[in-house]
Design a protein around this nucleic acid. Structure first.
Lengths: 235, 235
DNA sequence: TCAACGGAAAGGTAACACCATTTGCACCCT
DNA sequence: AGGGTGCAAATGGTGTTACCTTTCCGTTGA
């Protein structure tokens, strides 16, 4: 399982939100499908209040629309908040997983190079030294083919740079990138052993960030991600 | 007013969601501040159910966390779903407007060039001709200094390319970019008359997309956005 | 120092009145 | 006969109230 880092307060609506969200994201409840509160109550054995609250959340994410007399209608994907971590998670968990990984990878290629460049300008001293340290660790783990541990450090590496960018919208993508990295290894889209070039590029990014060389950090990160994508495509 | 294109079902929680969301986004309710359902009920004169539903939505956006015996606590911005259109809207409406415009502009620089490149590969024939048409219209309106109409066509131009990219995550940013463009003119961050270079670049992007020249579309769009940012920064 | 306890506040259930919208049917005019 | 108009009933979300349960924070007392 991909780790679930949501706070999820164990509430009663959480399971039903999860189930309905997944079914919608998976397309099992297609656009235009109509649910009713009564149906939800009965299906999950909960009170109306709970059913309503779950539905409200779904509605605020754009997955459904609630209208009087007609019920709760599933909306087309164009209306979804596709940046909502829950929605991303649901799509990653369902049959659209491959497509979601592809769109997320494109997003990474767009954002992470700029984030790395910004981090080279904005990172704290602690962050700069940590990123260098992480790159060295990745080198060691990669050459030892310690895949799981490598992935966890890689998650930390990318999250650190996104958060050090000083742009909270970039920082908010850290969890999403973590999900992508974990999902990718889980899907077997990783090479059996990280290619040396990737290790070089991690180190190049780290060195550029540590040295405050913004443009260099950006291009190195871009090269790294393009390499990642090319490794994903053919399978 | 920046146009509000939310569906906002006129419900009774919508006003209270709006008010609380704005107050949190504005920092009037600082991180750690504690609300109670009773307080919300009383303040807005609504029943417990309505207060709870509004709170649930806020919670699903990461703005607050609800805990028994403690109340409803405002969470730090790092936990917010800063890509949620409502959150973006609230931040744009409050004192953080300038900061939000800056982070959004960085996001645009990250995403729109890649989206334009993807659009050059994926756009339909209708979209290709429309983008060329829009660029010509922008030229005409820009030279005539028809600022309002120019902005509306500009919104359409950028939205079209984001949606034509074939990546629904990029497409979902269309509304956000629209808000940025409208907010920017409203803030007076636009030159009195669009600079000729910007008009040239719009046409260059359009021609490259229409001709399927992906790399060219990408670099032209990047140049356009960098120009936009430099126009915003000094004032 | 730590365990027990009281109470505050959210979590959840149930029953109800209300209201908007749709559906369908009756009616009337052409 | 056909079709539009309008009334009425069914349906399903919206909002309110009352009440009980569960969780933990803070205090108190051994």
């Amino acid at each position: 399982m991909i780790e679930r880092r949501n706070q999820s307060g164990s509430g009663l609506h959480d399971p039903i939100l999860e189930k309905l969200g997944m079914e919608i994201a998976a397309g099992e409840l297609p656009t235009g499908h109509v649910l009713t509160l009564d149906g939800i109550q009965e299906r999950f054995g909960v009170s109306r209040t709970v059913a309503r609250e779950a539905m409200r959340i779904l509605e605020s994410m754009g997955l459904v629309q609630s209208r009087r007399r007609v019920g709760i209608t599933v909306r087309p994907i164009a209306d979804w908040n596709v940046f909502d971590p829950k929605v991303i998670w649901w799509r990653l968990s369902g049959p659209a997983r491959g497509a979601q990984l592809r769109t997320l990878t494109e997003l990474r290629i767009a954002v992470e190079p700029l984030a790395a460049g910004a981090a080279a300008r904005a990172a704290t001293a602690a962050q700069r030294s940590r990123v260098v340290e992480l790159a060295a660790t990745l080198r060691r783990l990669g050459e030892a083919a310690e895949l799981t541990e490598f992935m966890e450090r890689d998650v930390e590496f990318h999250a650190l740079l996104l958060q050090a960018s000083g742009n909270e919208m970039f920082g908010a993508l850290a969890d999403v990138v973590a999900a992508v990295l974990r999902g990718r290894t889980q899907l077997g889209l990783m090479p059996h052993k990280p290619v040396p070039q990737a290790l070089d590029l991690h180190e190049a990014v780290a060195a550029a960030v540590a040295g405050g060389r913004s443009a260099e950090a950006e291009t190195a990160m871009r090269a790294l991600l393009v390499e990642v994508r090319s490794a994903m495509l053919p399978g």
